[in-house]
Amino acid sequence: METIITLFEYRFFTNALLAALFASITCGITGAYIVSRRIVFISGGITHASFGGIGIGYFFGFNPIVGAMIFSVLSAFGIEYMSKKTNLREDSVIAILWSFGMAVGIIFIFLTPGYSANLMSFLFGNILTVTKLNLVFLLILALLITGIFLVFFKTILFIAFDEQYARAVKLPVETINYLMITLVALTIVFNIKVVGIILVISLLTIPQTIANIFTKKFEIMIWLSIIIGFLGSISGLLLSYYLNVPSGAAIIFFLVILFFISKIFRNILTSLRIRKQIQ
């Protein structure tokens, strides 16, 4: 009996470890892009818009993640298109799609008979109940994102840094922008199960912001973000296990604490250096 329990524990813990790893890779890379490009708000919009897809999935009885995928990619394209090709303000477009997705989600979940216990797992995530299918999707996404960044790195970097110049010298700005916003949308959707809609934005920004405290190089920022994200996820996971609190919240809590420690550490380091220079 005991061996079965250990095995079971072992298994779900391995799954959680793998989920943490894939989440750190996907969020680490796309998050570095999001933070550098200052499109955190766009990502927030996409995240919440995806809730509409989850509601529709519940109502019509198909996998809510599929619904979330459709909604997030469409809203990502919508934001990219409407803010560039129409004279609407980008932040207004984001706010409209953000609240529209939430509204659609709430309407359809309300219309779905019975209470869906699973709903909480979409809002707050649970790394311990990530399914095998979700793991496979996360793995594929991690490989895809890594591959795209390895192959197109400089082009992505140049366009992200100075889009106007990139257009002037005929770099494939549209193609890269749509590709990147799709990756952002997919990263968000497949990490919803891990940390939830409310918290996924933090995996895309907190490790990157911590990394940015210590490096100003994009490549290193990506690597550091992955490592910090992974450490944060594991620590949060253990924290949630021992304190019996939701894992998503524990992970974010741990990352934010790490952020403040890093910031203070950096400030002390800087002031020490300045003092040394004066002496």
Binding site: S36, V151, F152, K154, T155, L157, F158, F161, D162, Y165, A166, V169, K170, L171, P172, T175, I176, N212, T215, K216, K217, F218, M221
Partner: peptide
């Protein structure tokens, strides 16, 4: 976050190419 050398290299990027 981009290095000075990379900024200059972007002047050598090929038009209409995804891979540089």
């Amino acid at each position: 976050p981009i290095s000075v050398l990379d900024v200059v290299l972007s002047g050598l990027a090929q038009p209409n190419r995804l891979i540089n």
